[in-house]
Amino acid sequence: MRDEEEIREQYEFLVEELESEEMSHEGIREMFTYYRRALGWALEEEHM
């Protein structure tokens, strides 16, 4: 299992990618949104 710091780094990277102008294709944006949610849920479960 990845440590929390690595997961947080990936989460922040995805947030930046979603906000960038290059992420204009809706299918890619949707995929990253789902992945970002999954990472968020993983982080929440670690702290419950």
Rank of each mutant, 00 (worst) to 15 (best):
L43D: 04
T33W: 00
Q10V: 03
I7W: 03
S24C: 07
M48H: 15
E22H: 02
F32Q: 04
L14K: 06
D3M: 01
E17G: 01
L18H: 03
L18V: 12
R37C: 08
E30R: 15
S24P: 02
T33S: 13
L39K: 04
R2W: 08
E5F: 08
L43H: 06
I28R: 15
H25A: 06
E9F: 01
L39W: 02
L14V: 13
R8H: 02
I7D: 01
G27P: 05
E19I: 00
G40A: 10
Y35V: 06
R36Y: 01
I7H: 02
E45C: 04
E6Q: 13
E19A: 15
R37V: 06
Q10M: 09
E21A: 11
S24E: 14
Y34K: 14
E16S: 10
I7S: 00
V15I: 15
E4G: 08
T33F: 03
H25E: 13
M48E: 10
E12R: 10
E46F: 00
E17I: 04
W41M: 05
Q10D: 12
Q10N: 07
M23N: 13
G27M: 12
Y11W: 07
G27I: 02
G40K: 07
E44N: 01
W41F: 04
L39M: 14
E22Q: 04
A38R: 11
F32C: 06
E6Y: 00
E46D: 06
E22G: 05
D3I: 01
Y11I: 10
E12S: 09
H25T: 11
E4M: 08
E19W: 04
F32K: 11
R29Q: 05
M1G: 13
E22Y: 06
E44P: 00
H25G: 03
E45T: 11
D3C: 12
R29W: 04
L39N: 06
Y35T: 04
M1S: 11
Y35C: 03
M23D: 04
F32L: 15
L39E: 06
W41P: 01
R8K: 10
D3P: 03
M23R: 05
V15L: 14
Q10H: 04
